[in-house]
C-alpha cells in the first residue's frame, strides 16, 4: 500500500516545529522592542507648543532657574506650570511687540490660559510626586535630560515602569547632593559612589523593598 506521506514529510515536520518556536521567539522579541520604541513611548519626540517657547534660550542662555517658572516643584506633586503673568514679568518689556508672543499677550489680555501640550504624560494609575524626588536628591536632569539644550522639549526617557524601577532599586546610583538638584551642568560622576551611598543614608531614602513595593507608586 502506498504511504500517505513521502519521506520528506519527516523533514518538513521537524522544520516546522523548529520554525514555530523560532517565529514565536522572534515575534516576542519584536513585540518587546516595539513596545520600547519611541514610536509607541513618545521618547525623543519633540512636542510643538502654541508658543515657540525655548528652554534652551531661557535656561541655557539666560540662566533662569527651573523654579522661576515651575514654582511648586519643591512643595507639591505637580512641578507647576507658570501662569501667563510669569511670562509677562519680562515680556511686558522685552519683545513686547513681537508677533511671536501675541498668544502670550492675548492670554494676559483676555485672562485665558494658554493651552500647552503635555510632554510628560504618566498613566493615571501611577502616583507621582515631584517634591519628594527633589527632597531626596533626584536632579531635574536625571529624569528630564538636558532641558537647557532643548529648543523644543521632548521626553528624554520612556517613563515606562522598567525605567522608573531601575532607580527605585538602586537610588544610590542616581541621586546627587540637594544643592545640585537644579544644576543643569551637573554630571553623574561629579559625586563619587561613596558620597552617594552616604547621601542615601543622610536623606533617609527608604530601602529597596519599600521603594519597589507596588503600592509605593500604584495607590
Amino acid at each position: 500500500m502506498a504511504q500517505i506521506f513521502r519521506k520528506s514529510a519527516n523533514n518538513i515536520a521537524k522544520i516546522s516545529m523548529v520554525s514555530v518556536v523560532l517565529l514565536a521567539g522572534v515575534g516576542f522579541y519584536a513585540w518587546t522592542q516595539l513596545a520600547r520604541s519611541s514610536y509607541l513611548t513618545g521618547q525623543y519626540l519633540e512636542i510643538q507648543q502654541p508658543v515657540q517657547f525655548s528652554h534652551k534660550h531661557h535656561v541655557g542662555d539666560d540662566g533662569i532657574d527651573c523654579r522661576y517658572c515651575h514654582q511648586t516643584v519643591e512643595t507639591t506633586a505637580s512641578a507647576g506650570m507658570p501662569s501667563t503673568q510669569t511670562c509677562m514679568n519680562c515680556h511686558s518689556q522685552l519683545w513686547a511687540d513681537a508677533p511671536y508672543l501675541e498668544p502670550i499677550r492675548a492670554s494676559f489680555r483676555d485672562n485665558k490660559p494658554i493651552q500647552w501640550n503635555r510632554v510628560h504624560d504618566l498613566p493615571e494609575y501611577v502616583y507621582f510626586n515631584h517634591s519628594i524626588h527633589i527632597a531626596k536628591g533626584v536632579g531635574c536632569s536625571t529624569c528630564h535630560g538636558p532641558v537647557d539644550k532643548m529648543p523644543t522639549v521632548y521626553e528624554e526617557n520612556t517613563l515606562q515602569m522598567e525605567w522608573c524601577i531601575q532607580c527605585h532599586r538602586e537610588p544610590e546610583k542616581f541621586i546627587r547632593p540637594r544643592s545640585e538638584v537644579f544644576n543643569m551642568a551637573y554630571r553623574p560622576d561629579d559625586t563619587d559612589q561613596a558620597t552617594r551611598d552616604q547621601l542615601k543614608v543622610d536623606y533617609k531614602i527608604r530601602s529597596r523593598e519599600m521603594l519597589t513595593s507596588c503600592s509605593t507608586c500604584h495607590r
Binding site: 539666560d62 533662569i64 519680562c90 518689556q93
Partner: peptide
C-alpha cells in the same frame, strides 16, 4: 542677565 537682554 535679563537686564543685559534689554529689560530696564
Amino acid at each position: 542677565m535679563v537686564v543685559r537682554r534689554g529689560f530696564p
